[in-house]
């Protein structure tokens, strides 16, 4: 950690501790996202800071016994640092972009709170918005209905245009959370029809019909921390060798690996749903030069033959 990072933190820590008398070491460490040990090191620096003159009455006072014995911080004699430093442009922009993301994603009530908070922050920093965020957040009515169902803890019936399977379904689900991943909003919900956790992209939900049925406890929905599909134990690796015309998938889908292959690329993806892979191969058509394992292409080949039969071709 650099001295600059420490000074920046100290300049916020002094007013914070005056706003929060008798603060708990762990809580403060969490607010500033440092270890309790680092926080103690910070306090030891502040112990030597104060007004020019250097007499004991000029220095910031910290009750070090209370810190060590009780884990409590009592700081005084620091009126000269009563308020935090202004936001840096970096901090203001990072916060403003985060708020803009919520503006794209939240329900009506959240968005109105975000908009007014954003206006106040921007009034203080006086910056032009130089960073924009557009999230695939779905229709307002869908977001509002889901927020309402989440707050009330009731099941909903979705009208869902599933893209990977290419059909409209009407699942009854217990909503658990709305989350953004890779730029799109998703609903994580327990599907009553499937008896399992499912993820629904918000912009593909056409309608949400609330029910009076309270949601049951299904535990936590699976996390996405490991990345796309990593939580699906049934996912298999498939490697596609693609002509240049198929290179777009490297920017479109999360891939395990990509390497150049001739003019094109060789891309390895994790496939959890064979129907999704069938559609991808049908989509790519002549851009697919090779599929490994080869049997992964069998379903797409059969589907193409069935389609050709529909054309009498």
């Amino acid at each position: 950690m650099t001295s600059a990072a420490q000074v920046s933190r100290l300049l916020a820590l002094v007013p914070y501790l005056q706003q929060h008398p008798d603060a708990d070491v762990r809580t403060v460490a969490e607010v500033f996202q440092v270890t309790p040990r680092q926080l103690l090191a910070d306090l030891n620096v502040l112990w030597f800071c104060g007004l020019p003159g250097g007499t004991p009455g000029d220095l910031i006072e910290i009750d070090m016994d209370a810190v060590e014995a009780e884990g409590r911080i009592r700081l005084s004699n620091a009126d000269f640092l009563a308020r935090p430093l202004r936001f840096t442009l970096d901090e203001a922009m990072a916060l403003a972009v985060a708020l803009r993301a919520l503006l794209e994603f939240g329900d009506t009530a959240l968005r109105s709170a975000v908009a007014s908070a954003l206006a106040k922050i921007e009034a203080v920093v006086g910056t032009e918005p130089r960073v924009g965020v557009l999230l695939g957040g779905g229709a307002d009515a869908v977001r509002d209905a889901l927020a309402d169902a989440l707050a009330r803890g009731v099941a909903v019936r979705l009208e869902y245009n599933g893209a990977s399977r290419g059909a409209t379904t009407h699942p009854l689900v217990d909503p658990a959370r709305v989350a953004v991943r890779d730029g799109y909003s998703y609903l994580d919900a327990w599907s009553h029809d499937r008896g399992a956790w499912r993820t629904y992209r918000l912009d593909r939900i056409v309608a949400v019909t609330p029910t009076d049925r309270p949601v049951a406890d299904h535990g936590e929905p699976p996390g996405w921390a490991g990345g796309w599909l990593d939580h699906r134990p049934d996912a298999v690796e498939v490697t596609l060798t693609l002509a240049p015309a198929g290179r777009w998938i490297t920017e479109y889908y999360p891939l395990r690996s990509v390497e150049p292959a001739g003019d094109g690329v060789r891309a390895t993806l994790l496939v959890a749903d064979p129907v999704w892979l069938r559609r991808l191969l049908l989509r790519l058509g002549p851009a697919v030069l090779a599929v490994d394992p080869p049997e992964a292409a069998a379903s797409a080949r059969d589907a193409a033959r069935a389609a050709l039969a529909a054309y009498d071709a």
């Binding site: 916020a12 706003q19 607010v31 840096t88 970096d90 901090e91 916060l95």
Partner: peptide, 16 residues
């Protein structure tokens, strides 16, 4: 940028 946001929010907390 997550750090920058944490710093900004810590400043807000320091301001009450």
């Amino acid at each position: 940028l997550a750090d920058a946001t944490v710093r900004a929010v810590a400043k807000l907390r320091a301001a009450g």
